[in-house]
């Protein structure tokens, strides 16, 4: 029925049986078909329960931080997971030789909440076909535009497949250029409207750290956001501004645009609009065509003698 899934189970099963990995990270059955959960198979039996379908939403790369400590781990990687792994490797937090990457060609993950809202009932299956998504419900199949069904992070995705893999589950899809339409729209507002926008969203922040803990770039052993010298534990709007300013700046030039922070946020803060602002400016000011893909030289880790003065020139939009 699902050939990709069967193939993945068999690849993961062999990797585990041959002892090439001690653990395989993918998705497994969750509370309902539309919510598969991160799954950690330790043997062929558990690999036999791996799930691979358009509902596989959560980002997996960050789990490699914990799970490569005991030996090599396998992982099923979409483009976002692949870039997350590149980030961890570039930051020397995970050894590339400690990870066996099974690359896939991802066509976007269906947001379980959007799907249920659209269908008005529980959704059992989904199929992404170009610009439409077919949802299977007890009442039959319903078709919706892709842009209404997918996770936000998938709608902006330019990386359906990882850039490298140790084996491919299927023919990888080529990457594309990232666009920053959301950032551009916000830039067109005046300062007061922009401030009102961010104050409204950040006011909801719970400081649960779900964004930070979802992020493959937020991989520091000790985080300044846990240090009261840098950020007190008070929870006023000013503190939230400090939290999100610092978080976004610390991943500037390092964010891989997986969008997992925004997916993880329980109160719907459009965190990618913060990360993407840095990406867009890095692209425009420092001529980095794909700022979300880990670079030879980190955009903020080096300089060029003829860098522009970004506060003076070229920023007509603001």
């Amino acid at each position: 029925m699902n050939e990709r899934q069967a193939k993945l189970r068999s690849i993961a099963g062999s990797l585990l049986a041959e002892g090439r990995v001690s653990l395989f990270i993918g998705f497994g059955p969750g509370l309902e078909p539309s919510r598969p959960v991160p799954w950690f198979a330790k043997n062929a039996d558990e690999a036999g329960k791996l799930v691979l379908d358009p509902f596989c939403g959560p980002g997996l790369a960050r789990y490699l931080l914990d799970e490569t400590a005991a030996g090599p781990a396998g992982i099923v990687a979409r483009g976002c997971d692949g870039l997350g792994l590149e980030r961890l490797v570039a930051d020397k937090r995970v050894g590339r030789d400690q990870v066996y990457v099974v690359g896939v060609a991802c066509r976007g993950a269906v947001d379980p909440d959007k799907a249920r809202r659209l269908a008005g009932r529980p959704v059992f299956g989904a199929e992404v076909n170009g610009e439409t998504v077919a949802l299977t419900t007890a009442g039959g199949r319903l078709s919706f535009p892709r842009s209404d069904c997918l996770l936000d992070r998938c709608l902006a995705c330019a990386d359906p497949s990882p850039r490298t893999a140790d084996t491919w589950l299927e023919e990888p899809l080529p990457g594309a250029q990232r666009e920053f339409e959301g950032v551009e729209a916000l830039e067109k507002l005046g300062p007061d409207d922009r401030y009102a926008f961010w104050a409204r969203h950040l006011e909801r922040c719970l400081r649960c750290h779900a964004c930070r803990n979802a992020c493959p770039a937020c991989n520091c052993v000790a985080c300044s956001l846990d240090n009261p010298e840098w950020l007190e534990r008070t929870t006023g709007l000013a503190d939230h501004f400090m939290f999100h300013f610092t978080r976004a700046y610390h991943v500037a030039g390092r964010c891989v645009a997986c969008g997992e922070c925004q997916r993880a946020c329980p109160v719907g803060i459009p965190l990618m609009l913060l990360n993407e602002k840095f990406m867009k400016d890095i692209r425009d000011l420092f001529a980095v065509p794909d700022p979300h893909r880990p670079q030879e030289a980190e955009p903020l880790g080096h300089f060029s003698p003829d860098d522009p003065e970004g506060w003076r020139e070229g920023d007509e939009t603001l």
Partner: peptide, 16 residues
């Protein structure tokens, strides 16, 4: 141990 692997140690559950 097995179920905790997928936990990300954030405070979403407790804060909600």
């Amino acid at each position: 141990e097995q179920v905790a692997r997928r936990c990300r140690s954030c405070g979403t559950c407790a804060y909600l």
